[in-house]
Design a protein around this nucleic acid. Structure first.
Lengths: 156, 156
DNA sequence: TTGAGATTTCTCGAATTCGAGCTAGTTTCG
DNA sequence: CGAAACTAGCTCGAATTCGAGAAATCTCAA
């Protein structure tokens, strides 16, 4: 049967395929580690950004974890129930809410973040430091330009 | 306040962050295009693999779309309801089911796959052909080694 | 041949995510 | 000032995904 242009022929489609696979493979490592501590991926994402950046508006945290606002509200609810973060009014913007790590949340991150970093390092140990660096450059450029390209224009 | 080792310092963590962002950015393009035709991402994934490889066992299709078996059954149900694929018994393995594109399904893919390819190409147009090739090499290597690394070993 | 272990596929409930739409607060600028 | 446009964050229903587990079949070494 005549195979219509195989995706492997097109460099962009090929990269798309390997990108999805790599993301999935590394995700599994990250998820396994994080689940191990009773956290969902997105929960860990929020905690991590607060841990590294300090208190943030919900919308700022949201941008970093790549979820829609409805999902973010759901995740923040969970974290509040677990007493890992607290919502506080944002004095700079009365629309907004500031997310703050509780001491319980900070303690948890202090315990598990190093382990998380080690998990990612191990998952990526197939690339040499130079390869990691080069890959990050290229993939960053890809992400930035893809994000900057208009979503709409369906050709045809 | 003292910022604990910023993720930007660690090449592996850095790549992890940009990888997730790039995947997300390109996904949005793919999703927008595919949604435009009334298909979910995973539905398109199944159709595409059948379109390019011919009839496949459910488990083979599943491996390529990176979903768990429960989710795959759900997606295949949807596609059957839409009369885009058909489940047929697998003569080689009585446990299994073979997925076959209907003519409606093949017609749909013939119409929209070229557009999909163009969408991906456009989303990735920020990289030169040489960069695409190099990125694919590195990211493929990353994905393969990450997939081959044991999931369990939580250090500590 | 046989039986332990692996594979394939599905079901089902729970968890997560999306997406649209709403309210309230903010910004822009004539 | 004041209207229009935008932003922040939420709710809610629908869609999707996961994860565990069951049933059928297959594999392969003893």
């Amino acid at each position: 049967m005549p195979q219509n242009e195989a995706p492997g022929r097109d460099p962009a489609l090929e990269l798309w395929v390997v990108l999805a696979r790599a993301f999935d493979a590394v995700s599994r490592h990250a998820r396994a580690q994080v689940t191990h501590h009773g956290l969902a991926d997105a929960e860990f994402g929020i905690l991590e950004v607060l841990y590294h950046k300090g208190p943030l508006a919900v919308c700022e945290a949201q941008r970093r974890i790549l979820l829609q606002s409805g999902s973010t509200a759901y995740v923040v609810d969970k974290l509040e129930q677990k007493k890992l973060v607290k919502r506080t009014p944002n004095p700079k913007d009365k629309r907004g809410t500031l997310l703050v790590l509780t001491s319980k949340g900070r303690g948890l991150m202090t315990r598990i973040f190093p382990e998380h970093a080690e998990t990612i390092r191990r998952a990526m140990s197939g690339l040499s430091p130079a390869e990691l660096k080069r890959a990050a450059e290229l993939v960053r450029k890809l992400g930035l330009t893809a994000a900057a390209t208009a979503l709409d224009g369906i050709p045809g």
